[in-house]
Design a protein around this nucleic acid. Structure first.
Lengths: 143, 143
DNA sequence: AAATTTTTTGCAACCTGGTTGCATTTCATT
DNA sequence: AATGAAATGCAACCAGGTTGCAAAAAATTT
């Protein structure tokens, strides 16, 4: 089998490029929004065990290939990290997460300037993230 | 029994002030951080069924008394709404949620100016929320 | 004040997302 | 081909949360 793009991306993050992993990474790359375990399970339609999907997500996240996206429905959703410098140690995904009220999908939008903010004295700030809610482009056009 | 503050607050949100509900609301008011179902269950120590706590939280939220606080560990946490104008229809809690990496508690901090932001065309913005992570005052002082 | 209706509570059972332990398979290495 | 390490599948489990229903408590009517 030839070395594909996906293959390389996995290797770059020290993840052995098995068939399943390549398939799952492809799903992430071609998806416009964050994916949940259930999304992937449906898309894969029994190509593998559900536990394997959980472990793949876990591994991908540890290796800085994907990041968890906050979702107020209490289920984990993930999106590929745009920033290639993300590692197991540090995620640098300072962008906006936009949740569509209609379709429920979450989009990672690039935002020009992250706001700076001042905390009350005594608090130490390490990370900041911006969450927005509204109607996405696609749903907007349907109305 | 005389009409206490708690009592009135519940009535103002059309919630019948039963003993359990008053106790739970008191917990929220006196707590410095967001509470999970587990937190409340522990604090109440078998004073009532766990389902009752779930339903109380549901009710409180519907009536705009508390709001869900995003937590990346996939469990629901709630805090009292500072803004008294919150209703079942609309929550107006535009503040900062600060998660402490050490104690895990989430604090609602008042922030002067919510950043304004521009979305890509086609997106409709309805709500925005700011999440921060770091070390809280108390944990900071312990080090 | 008794009767009726509505709301709240408790209990049991269930659902769903996620995790763990272990045996088996696959893959890279020698 | 043989060995060792990592990945997969399976079964069982766990925890947070929900649902249905009967009993209890409050509010309302007569």
């Amino acid at each position: 089998m030839t070395t594909t793009m996906t293959d390389e991306k996995l290797r770059n993050h020290s993840i052995r490029p098995t068939a399943i992993r390549k398939t799952i990474l492809d799903l992430f790359i071609s998806s416009g929004y964050a994916l949940s375990h259930a999304d992937i399970e449906k898309l894969l339609d029994n190509q593998c065990d559900r536990v394997t999907i959980y472990r793949t997500l876990e591994r991908f996240e540890q290796q800085g290939l994907i990041h968890k996206v906050p979702d107020n429905s209490n289920i984990n959703k993930y999106a590929v990290c745009a920033d290639t410098s993300c590692t197991s140690q540090e995620h640098h995904d300072e962008h906006l997460h936009f949740t569509c009220e209609q379709c429920g999908n979450i989009f990672c939008l690039n935002i020009m300037n992250m706001p700076t903010l001042e905390l009350p004295s005594g608090y130490l700030l390490n990370r900041i993230s911006l969450e927005a809610e509204g109607v996405c482009k696609e749903c907007n056009e349907m109305n």
